[in-house]
Design a protein around this nucleic acid. Structure first.
Lengths: 192, 192
DNA sequence: GAACTAATGTAATATTATTACATATCATTG
DNA sequence: CAATGATATGTAATAATATTACATTAGTTC
């Protein structure tokens, strides 16, 4: 890819959000993952994913819509929802049901230089487990999740239920926001 | 005032739905539970709970609204949402996040003659675990749930996260629906 | 029964999501 | 290159879900 004279004409807003280097790397990674599954990481999708990666809390579809409007284009809801659908199908983001909002899939967050093993459908099962803080709004994906998933799998097995996707959402108060237990730090500034 | 003086004027729709004996018993049970917590099981709330108990699949707020309209009153959304909030707070129903719909809490379903130990906030933690069938729309509360909850509790403990409520929702195809879709249409590979 | 609290009625609006159809872009290949 | 077919996006309208704010009614307590 040569990018000497000009940025791609079709994506003037592509970097218009000033995505950090780290996020640009994650976007690059995501693009490779998509390509591996025959998906195309278009500028729209890239922008949406970039905004989700940039946010420190889950982002709603209409939040995204507003942010996209500030950068030249004036997208309508379907534009955003289609991008979100694409990103969900490719395992790049998750939907937090309780918030009607979206977060990146963690395997984008932790820079894996060349770990492509975390496919979308097969290995990931498109399931996720989250801790949602009511105080700061932060959401943490549970690392310990395989244990939860194993229990669920075993239950489904017993009941002959074919699991296609699963979501586990715990709402409460995160460590940083809990005032009573220790010296109060106040609501946490930024999770993750 | 004694309860003996039935209020026929204010609750003509009370039994207007022809709730079965079984459901009337469940409603009675629910009323006692509420009373024990200082809650009042009003006709509106009773009707809403009865409709949810009657349905075989999760019911949406506007479904309830429509059904309530057929029985004399013409409630508006807040009426239904307030009843739902009350029932949720008293642990009588659960919200299925993925469906934006409501189901009875199982402890109303299985007739316990005198089991009032299943309090709403403390013992129940207002958490629930469900299997949601994409084919028939049926929802099953997982009986085996304590195991799931225990794992979650242990994770939250490690992270100093105070759990206030949790939802576990598994989507897929239930046993009864699996044979019908066994060929290519099955839930086999791609999530789409 | 006056005063207070809880519950409901009512109108308007907010938020989240989808449908249907038109247009544009891309990736070929004839 | 032009024709093609699939993929992606634009656009307008609307559906589905949920909340706000304020008025009214019902129940309880003193």
């Amino acid at each position: 890819m040569n990018m000497q004279t000009r940025t791609p004409a079709s994506s003037p807003a592509d970097n218009g959000y000033g995505f950090s280097d780290r996020i640009q790397r994650q976007l690059e990674h995501a693009a490779h993952l998509c390509a591996g599954q025959g998906g195309r990481m278009t500028p729209q999708r890239r922008d949406v994913l970039g905004l989700i990666l940039t946010a420190t809390t889950p982002v709603g579809a209409y939040d995204l819509l507003e942010q996209l409007k500030t950068s030249g284009r004036k997208p309508a809801p379907p534009t955003v929802y289609r991008a979100l659908d694409f990103l969900l199908e490719h395992g790049l983001i998750h939907r937090i049901e309780r918030l009607s909002a979206f977060v990146p899939c963690t395997h984008l967050q932790h820079d894996h230089p060349h770990d492509h093993s975390h496919g979308p459908a097969e290995t990931c099962l498109h399931s996720a487990q989250f801790l949602i803080c009511r105080s700061c709004g932060g959401v943490t994906e549970i690392a310990d999740a395989p244990r939860v998933l194993d229990v669920l799998k075993s239950i489904c097995g017993k009941k002959n239920f074919t699991m296609q996707s699963a979501s586990v959402e715990v709402e409460g108060v995160c460590e940083d926001c809990a005032p009573a237990t220790r010296g109060q730090k106040g609501p946490a500034p930024a999770p993750n």
